[in-house]
Nucleic acid binder design. Sequence first.
DNA 1: TTACTGTACTGACACGCGCAACTGACGCGT
DNA 2: ACGCGTCAGTTGCGCGTGTCAGTACAGTAA
Lengths: 344, 344
Amino acid sequence: MAREVNTDGAGRTGQRRRRPTAADVARTAGLSRATVSYVLNDTPHQVIPERTRQRVFAAAAELGYSPSVAARALRSGRSDVVLLLLPDWPIGPTVGQLLEELSTALAEHGLTFVAHPRSAGRPVSDVWKAITPAAVVTFEELDDIETKKLQAAGIELTVALFGGLRGPRAMDIPEQRTGRLQAEHLAIAGHRHLGYAWPDDPRVLTFAEPRLAGVRQACADLGLAEPHVLTVPLTPNGAAEAVRAWQAAEPAVTGICAYNDEVALAVLAGARQHGIDVPGDIAVVGADNIPAAAIAIPPLTTVQPDMQALSDYIADTIVRKLNGRPSPKRPGSDIHSVIRRDSA
Amino acid sequence: MAREVNTDGAGRTGQRRRRPTAADVARTAGLSRATVSYVLNDTPHQVIPERTRQRVFAAAAELGYSPSVAARALRSGRSDVVLLLLPDWPIGPTVGQLLEELSTALAEHGLTFVAHPRSAGRPVSDVWKAITPAAVVTFEELDDIETKKLQAAGIELTVALFGGLRGPRAMDIPEQRTGRLQAEHLAIAGHRHLGYAWPDDPRVLTFAEPRLAGVRQACADLGLAEPHVLTVPLTPNGAAEAVRAWQAAEPAVTGICAYNDEVALAVLAGARQHGIDVPGDIAVVGADNIPAAAIAIPPLTTVQPDMQALSDYIADTIVRKLNGRPSPKRPGSDIHSVIRRDSA
DNA sequence: TTACTGTACTGACACGCGCAACTGACGCGT
DNA sequence: ACGCGTCAGTTGCGCGTGTCAGTACAGTAA
């Protein structure tokens, strides 16, 4: 908490070489600082002859000049940084991929992307004070107090990826599609009584809710019974209990939609404990397509999001909102697809 | 690439309420700006009577004042941000956990932690220009050109977590311990001929090398034969081939150290294809203890790093280096431990 | 000659902050 | 009365930008 890092900017190295400023470039080029600024930002409505421009570029290159973000941010009142607040539940390969894709997508619009893991328990409010991003992206909707603080800190835009049921600022990524595709896949294979493997971790609620909702909708649309929802812990024994309960149900459940691939793997382990064959006795569909899914026993059929398309959509939304333009239209059902393997 | 986001700082909302500055606080408190600054930073060697301090705090609270990082960074020449450059290989739960722990560890020293995924292919150099962090942490050692650029941009400190074999700036996290513990665990269980399941992905080389080196060392120390190294792809069929080769070796390999848990899962799947019993016919030890390991078939014995201790060490190193003090001593072998399950 | 127009460029300010240097008032010993 | 030290603050500079308003000059028209 305390600022125990010395702040003299020089460190122990003492006389560190000052990094070049626009003034240095101007001096080298034999021009004024204003001209340099106009050239380097090619400011509209400012006509600079080609010869002069080249002089500036040459000087800048020679000195290895790069503008100070701190000064630019101070001057313009905003930075080109987009901050993603990571959720407090353990992040896996899916989120990892989102980070990467989002980073490239935003970079194409000139925005720099960084992620900050919200330290469990600590107040979130300190982060943006140290970054002043142009936009803050969260997984779940922030509560009102947090939002107020954010606005007070001068952040123009906050975007929540999920949990659109609760707030207006949400992007409402169509996570129901995941559940819908799981159920449809099982229905096509002839399963009439589905189970839903609900995650044990309460922190993923905002994520699990829409997925289950999707399964519910699909069941209703296809004339199937309501899904039989059971909480499945990430242990073989706990999962075995759930599997037993599904088997004992009347009529027996024959197809399981799992909240994600990990829960699905637990179901596989639970089934194995009872000698129940997958997919013969019971079929399982996961979600997210983590690497472990491909090498599960049996290899796991799962629903995969098109992270690149998703990230493009998110990036597009952010850029448009920053410019006061309306959001792009929501992506269709094509951003999710079923990866057919052996478990269903 | 292009700056297509407008930068007028007001956005379309037009007359956005200006956020309060230290001057506003001073005005409200009926004091000068300097006094406010002294109080809020409780600057050493500045004596401010309690009554005045309270007046400042009250005014700050009333206005909801929070200092502008941009201005502070401009003035002091550095920010309190530590930037972690994520590697270009897919990041999983292990890295995820590192992020979280590192964030809390650094927060305790007053530093803000953010991560940036290096977009595949794009030059890395643009990132720190948009953040100007106090320190940059990388997984692998940067090459000389990158390092030069970094220094030119005014970054004081760069730290590489792994790959100490190549460069002097590396922290040299003792990843060999992971391999050593894997081998020792198998040796104690009576295995004399070990195999090493090498990852298919060339990007994780800097990670895999020290782990294998640890296995090699342990084998030498314990008088075992050299480990039999085979590349294991993340597919059941590919892994099955490797397993067959290990079985066919003369003498046969009975214990496998896997580069990480995913590779270990692949080995399990490969063994299953041939009807080979784990751990009866062949024992498998993973690394990292990802969630899927606990629910593998059979549950995977693995080596787990103590991420919290590791993060504390990293954070400590960074803080000390920023202050010009010597690095703390390397953590001992106790930061890794074997999680005993059924696969070995 | 003067007035005007466009080109090519410059001077100076403000952004918000930290901090060194200064000021004015008071108490105290001589 | 004078010098000195302490208290309780204030004035003012500079960090590096982006940009507005302005200037010097050449060219053209009246």
